[in-house]
């Protein structure tokens, strides 16, 4: 069962002078075991879209269907949607509040009525998934490093065992090591069948990991497809305001001056192609 978004329109403050149309008819889909990235810069509507995926917002028009349940038709169904879709906000570590890491991670499943006997195994499982050992469970979440805090925050959503994970800029503020570790974690979750919906302005990162990418601009879907399709379209059309990944830009510039190189964001592929060109 997939997530399906069809012609989604969202208007904030409809019918008032403050009316803003944040999404203007956006369609996309995602299945468990898939990594879908939503890319766009500030104000493009990507966070508004993300908040529909676990029914924090309901569509003004159009449809959002999560595993067969339509958002906005029956608010009692929203409970189910929120169990299916875990939403991780930007800087999730700012939302930590419990005294121990254990209590923090147990909060979600306890809230959903998971029997107390099952809680410790849920916590262990979530800690294991984010790569923290059991010794963390007794510590205060506030005494951890930034990267560890973020992993605890993610674990506290994973303990509910969501089928989909929606992450808003999960790598913001992490250094390259922290970024690598987080992406490896998400990839592991994806392989084990979780659907990853990754909201980001980092096109380079999205190209490296996604199965499908949605590029939003001003509330409209500009591009939708595999990383290969996105890069080709980017080079052909050039998107106003979207900064091209440097490797793609280099490939484009070299093609303009007659090099026979593929449109690619992969450093090694481009380097090999340039070498071949110059050896001819």
């Amino acid at each position: 069962m997939p997530i399906v978004v069809e012609n989604l329109v969202h208007i904030y403050h409809e019918g008032t002078p403050l009316e803003i149309e944040a999404l203007k008819g956006v369609s996309m889909n995602a299945t468990p075991g898939e990594w879908v990235s939503i890319v766009g810069h500030t104000g493009s509507g990507k966070s508004t879209l993300a908040q529909h995926l676990n029914a924090l917002l309901v569509p003004t028009r159009g449809k959002v269907i999560i595993d067969g349940i339509e958002v906005g038709t029956d608010s009692k169904e929203h409970r189910k949607i929120r169990q299916l879709v875990g939403l991780i906000f930007q800087y999730p570590e700012q939302q930590l509040f419990e005294e121990t890491v254990f209590a923090e991670i147990a909060f979600g499943p306890r809230n959903w009525g998971v029997p107390e006997g099952e809680i410790p195994s849920r916590v262990s499982e979530a800690l294991y998934l984010v790569g923290l050992d059991e010794s963390f469970s007794k510590r205060s979440p506030f005494q951890l490093s930034g990267g560890e805090k973020r992993r605890v925050a993610i674990a506290s959503v994973l303990s509910v065992r969501p089928r989909y994970l929606v992450l808003d800029e999960p790598t913001a503020g992490l250094d390259s090591k922290g970024k690598d570790e987080l992406c490896a974690l998400l990839e592991k979750l994806k392989t084990s069948g979780t659907g990853i919906i990754h909201v980001t302005h980092d096109l380079e990162l999205a190209l490296d990991f996604s199965d499908k990418i949605l590029v939003l601009e001003g509330g409209k879907a500009l591009l939708w497809g595999s990383p290969e399709i996105i890069v080709e379209e980017l080079i052909e059309r050039g998107i106003e305001g979207l900064v091209m990944p440097p490797v793609v830009e280099l490939a484009r510039r070299l093609r303009d001056v007659g090099f026979d190189v593929p449109v690619t964001w992969k450093a090694q592929v481009l380097a090999s192609a340039i070498e071949e060109n110059l050896q001819k």
Binding site: S176, K179, L250, A271, I274, E275
Partner: peptide
């Protein structure tokens, strides 16, 4: 990487082309 720093993709291309004497 030993110092937690990652070379960006463009620098990777540059490094390969330098190594190849290009």
């Amino acid at each position: 990487l030993e110092w937690g720093l990652r070379v960006p993709p463009l620098v990777e291309v540059w490094g390969r082309l330098r190594d190849a004497g290009l």
